[in-house]
Simulated scan of single mutants.
Amino acid sequence: MSQLTGNEAVDDAIKRTLAGEPLSRAESLTLAQQPVEPLTEGADIVRSRLAGEGVSVRGLGYVTRGICSQDCGFCAYSARHDADVEQHGVIEREKLREAAKRAERKGAERFNIVSTRRGADSELRTDEWEEVLGAIETIRAETDLDVDACLGFLQDHEAEKLAAEGVQHYVHMVETSPRYFEEITSTHTFEQRRETLETARAAGIDLISGIIVGMGETPTDRVDAALELREIGIDVFSLNILSPISGTPVADEIGLEPDITPDEILKTLAIVRFIHSEIRIDTNTARAPISREEFLESGGNSIQLGDMIHYGDYPVSEA
């Protein structure tokens, strides 16, 4: 194993990572300065040795879409922005049940119930909370799907109730680094997002979290966000590439194309793999300027396709 990629910094990172030694911030930033080819090659070595070829499919079902009180500059569903996107209020559990069964027929093993609200707010929006709980119970009873949830900020009792209902993963993105977070959102803090992840973890729920790239952040921000998530201890890392939407502040600032090159996306993915060596990493390449093959050969092992997430080389039926 004296020479793996021929790049000294990358090869040293491979050896240390395979030996179970976490890379420091300085070492991670050094990787960000390396050429894309040896970096992605090295990340693929780490993935194949430590993270495997994960094969699974996850479907998505929105209990609400839009009408959010927060001002996240990248988000088309904020009530504070003027983006032209489809919105709807609370969806009945029967429709979520139907969506879950469709996902299962297409090969899904998991189903994620999503709300674009600020938080679960079970006391303020009792009807919505009851629809979520009812949908979880129905889907678990009538399908073989595992159920995940993405409902925004959680209180302790809400996390405990979701755990008791059998929710396996809680999905809650940190979006970016603590430094850049203040540039894109003023209505809540990075620490509040971290607290929700810790609340879900304390209730016994596994965590899916990650970042959005291409919204004006720096490579250092991407590294710092990945390191924060390593400290929290997540189970799945989600790397999302922004599709800027007209009417949002980020799109007004950077335009309607992601502020990141394909090589920068691949380098970010590779560095995330070195930092999170043993967990699943997913993305949505449908809107990204990289191919599915490039993603899977650069340290990733899960791809979201439309309303489905596709892990590994697994065919999804359209039937």
Rank of each mutant, 00 (worst) to 15 (best):
I271H: 05
A270S: 12
S115I: 08
L154T: 10
D44N: 15
D221V: 07
S177G: 03
E231C: 03
R287M: 11
I254G: 07
E92S: 13
G54C: 01
E183Q: 14
E160K: 14
E142A: 03
D252M: 01
P258I: 05
L151R: 06
A141C: 01
Q70F: 12
Q70W: 04
L18A: 13
G52P: 06
D11T: 11
V213K: 00
A149T: 11
I275Y: 08
I234R: 08
L145S: 11
E37H: 08
L124C: 00
R280F: 03
I241V: 15
K106P: 00
I205C: 12
Q33P: 00
R93H: 12
T40P: 06
E198Y: 03
F181L: 04
L29M: 15
G255N: 10
R105E: 14
G89Q: 10
A83N: 09
V171Q: 13
I205N: 09
E158T: 10
N112T: 15
A226L: 05
A79P: 00
K106Y: 05
A26N: 13
S317M: 03
R118E: 12
A226P: 08
T285Y: 13
R179H: 13
N112R: 02
T138A: 12
A32C: 02
R273V: 01
A99V: 00
Q34C: 15
P315W: 00
A270V: 02
A149G: 07
V85K: 05
E183D: 15
D235K: 09
S177E: 03
R16Q: 15
H81D: 08
E183A: 13
H157R: 12
P38H: 01
L229A: 11
R110H: 13
